[in-house]
Each structure stands twice: as C-alpha cells, then as structure tokens.
Amino acid sequence: MKLRLENVQKSFGQTKVLDGISLEVAQGEMLCLIGASGSGKSTLLRCINLLEPLDDGAIWLDGIDIAEPSLDPQPIRQRIGIVFQSFNLFPHMTAEENVMLAPRRIHRKTRDQLRQPIAELFDRFGLRDHMNRYPDQLSGGQQQRVAIVRALAMKPDIMLFDEITSALDPELVGEVLEVLKSLKTEGMTMIMATHEMDFAREVADNICFLDQGRILEQGPPQQIFAAPKQMRTRDFLGRVLGAHKG
C-alpha cells in the first residue's frame, strides 16, 4: 500500500484552498498534518476520500490515480476510512448497527455473519458493553471510538483522521489517542490532522506543516519540532506549544 499526492489543487469559488500539495505515505506510516485553522487540513483529507472533487493534480493509490474524475468513487472510498471531528454517527442506529451497515450493504454479509467479528472489534477498543447503546447514550470519547470501529469494519488500507479529539472534553482525549497508538502498532497506514502536538511528536513518522493550502515544511517530528527551518513554522509551533504550556 502506498499513497502519493501530486500537485493537488482545490478552490472553493475564488478561494484557493489547496495550492499544489504533494506528499507520500508508505505502508504502516503515520503522517500528521499540522497547521492553523483554515490552512486546508480538512479539505485535503476530504479530497483524498473523494468527498470533495479535486480541481487538478493526482492521487495515486497503489498505482491507480483515484482522482480521475470518471472513476466510480464507491469502491475507492471503501479502501479509505475517514473519521471526523464531530463523530457523525447515525443517531437512529445503535453502535453495533452503525458499524454493521456498510459491511451488510457492501460486502453483502448477514447480521449473523458479522456479529462475531464486530463484537471482537468492539472488545478490542473497550466498547463491548456499549454495543447496543444509541449514540446519544455514549460519551464523546465512546462515540469517537465507535466511529473509528465503524471505519475499520470495512478493512480499509488507509485511515484518515480529521482532528478527531478536538470536540472532546480533555479527559476523554487520551482514550481516543490510545486507539490510534494501537492501530499504529498493528501497522495501519494513517494520515491525521491534529492539534495534539505531543502526540504527533511521539507517534508520527512524518509531519507536514500546512500554511494557506501549501506544505511549507515536512519531515520527521524531531526535525520539525526541534529545528523548524521556516519562520512561519516556528511562529505556529511557538503559538500552539506556548498555549499548551500556559
């Protein structure tokens, strides 16, 4: 599995939101996108998942350009899981039904066939007791973990996370980040937009600093955090890390 973006361009009306993004993620790697709010992190993730069409550029997934506008997006989206800041669980379904829906409809599996493997997934993320609850009966951290399980149930090749801890109370952030660590150990390939700098420093293989739709600087966390080359990267890190300490 390998994902490579080549000169990705995206505008909303007159506003250029992604301005020539190129990057690479190898199998089992975790890439963290950092950058100020409005720098284009969410848009980039949504483009990779084909929820937003690109204006120009290419996205190579195992040698296929998935940005080709004439392709059917459905089978591609099945290979790319995404988890959103606001969970977006289906409120009229229990946690288990949320997770079962896509495998039932897409892999044509029955509930009975799915019950066992899905129960194991819930177990792994400490959600066994919550399978039959509705989203509004779960805490934010539990909902977000269910959303991760829902995406994992499709057995994607790569997972995208869009600031998945930003809507959580501080004491619930840890349980969600733990899930990401365990996915990393299992060799899942991941791209994550985040403001959790400590986590990025500890777990990411690579960091991209986005600024006004461009990658201003990228490299391993030691380099980005210890010796940022760009003035704007230093400013940004100074702001978020300063705020964090204060």
Partner: peptide, 19 residues
C-alpha cells in the same frame, strides 16, 4: 455531514438515502 459519513464508508447513494 450524515450523508458524507455514509458516503465515506463506500455506501451507494441509494443506500445512503434509504438507511
């Protein structure tokens, strides 16, 4: 965001509407 969440799983448009 509900539509997007369902589409992102790879569901077909008619399944997104129906379920």
């Amino acid at each position: 965001s509900q539509r997007n969440a369902a589409l992102s799983l790879g569901l077909a448009g008619k399944d997104v509407m129906r379920f």
